[in-house]
C-alpha cells in the first residue's frame, strides 16, 4: 500500500467520522427501502426467504448511490479536485482509497441492517450462512468500485445526482443478478451458490482492473 493511498484513505475516513453523513443517510435510506418493500409485499414464511436476498441487495444499491455522489461532490468544493489532479501522485491511489472508504461505509450499513432485516422478514437461513460473508463483500465491492468510478465520471456533468444511477445500474446488473441469486440460494438452501460467487469474483477482478486503468483518463478529462 502506497503512502498516497493511505493518506487519502485516512482523510476520507476522518471526514466521515466527523460528519457521519454518508453512513447515516445510507442507513436510513436502506431502512426505508426495507420497510417499503415489506409493506408492499407483506413477506411471510417461504416467500420472505425468496425475496429477502433481492430486497437487501436492491436496498444497498439504492442507498449507496447517495453516498457515492457525496464522495466526489465533497472534493469539488474549494477546487480540491483540481488540486489533486495537479498532485504528482497516481490517480489510481486516490480512486482505490475512495473505493476502500466507501466499501467500509457500505459494509457498516449492511452489518447494522442485517439484524433488522432478519427480524422484519422473520428469516431463518436454511443454507450455509457463512457463505454470505463471501457474497456480500464481493457484491458490495462490485457496487462500490463501479459506483466510485462512475461518480467520478459524472461529477462534472449537469444534474450529476441524476446521472450516476442512470449509468451505474445498467453496468451493475450482472453483479446484482449474481448477488441476488447467491443470497437467495443461501437463504433458501435450495441450490449451490458457488457459481454465482465465482461470477461475482470475476466481475470484481475485471471491473476493478478496468477502473484502475481508465481512472487516470476520467480524472484528467477536459
Amino acid at each position: 500500500m502506497t503512502r498516497a493511498l493511505w493518506t487519502h484513505l485516512v482523510k476520507d475516513l476522518r471526514i466521515e467520522w466527523r460528519s457521519r453523513e454518508a453512513v447515516n443517510s445510507m442507513l436510513f435510506f436502506a431502512l426505508l427501502v426495507v420497510v417499503l418493500f415489506s409493506l408492499s409485499f407483506d413477506p411471510q414464511g417461504a416467500f420472505s426467504r425468496d425475496i429477502a436476498g433481492g430486497v437487501l441487495c436492491v436496498a444497498t444499491m439504492f442507498a449507496s448511490v447517495s453516498a457515492l455522489n457525496q464522495a466526489w461532490a465533497r472534493e469539488i468544493r474549494h477546487q480540491v479536485l483540481d488540486a489533486q489532479r495537479m498532485a504528482p501522485t497516481p490517480g489510481a491511489d486516490m480512486f482505490l482509497a475512495k473505493v476502500l472508504a466507501n466499501f467500509l461505509f457500505v459494509t457498516v450499513v449492511q452489518v447494522v441492517l442485517a439484524p433488522v432485516f432478519v427480524v422484519m422478514y422473520n428469516l431463518r437461513i436454511l443454507g450455509d450462512a457463512w457463505k454470505l460473508a463471501l457474497v456480500l463483500p464481493f457484491g458490495t465491492w462490485a457496487l462500490v468500485a463501479n459506483g466510485t468510478f462512475f461518480a467520478a465520471l459524472s461529477i462534472r456533468s449537469r444534474n450529476r445526482e441524476l446521472l450516476l444511477p442512470l449509468i451505474l445500474f445498467p453496468i451493475f446488473m450482472p453483479a446484482l443478478l449474481a448477488m441476488v441469486l447467491a443470497t437467495g440460494s443461501i437463504l433458501t438452501g435450495d441450490s449451490d451458490p458457488s457459481l454465482w460467487i465465482k461470477l461475482l469474483f470475476g466481475y470484481d477482478i475485471i471491473f476493478t482492473t478496468v477502473s484502475l486503468l481508465l481512472f487516470e483518463i476520467v480524472l484528467h478529462a477536459e
Partner: peptide, 9 residues
C-alpha cells in the same frame, strides 16, 4: 445510458 451521458455531460 451512453446516449444520456452524451446529452447530460
Amino acid at each position: 445510458s451512453y446516449l444520456l451521458l452524451r446529452r447530460f455531460a
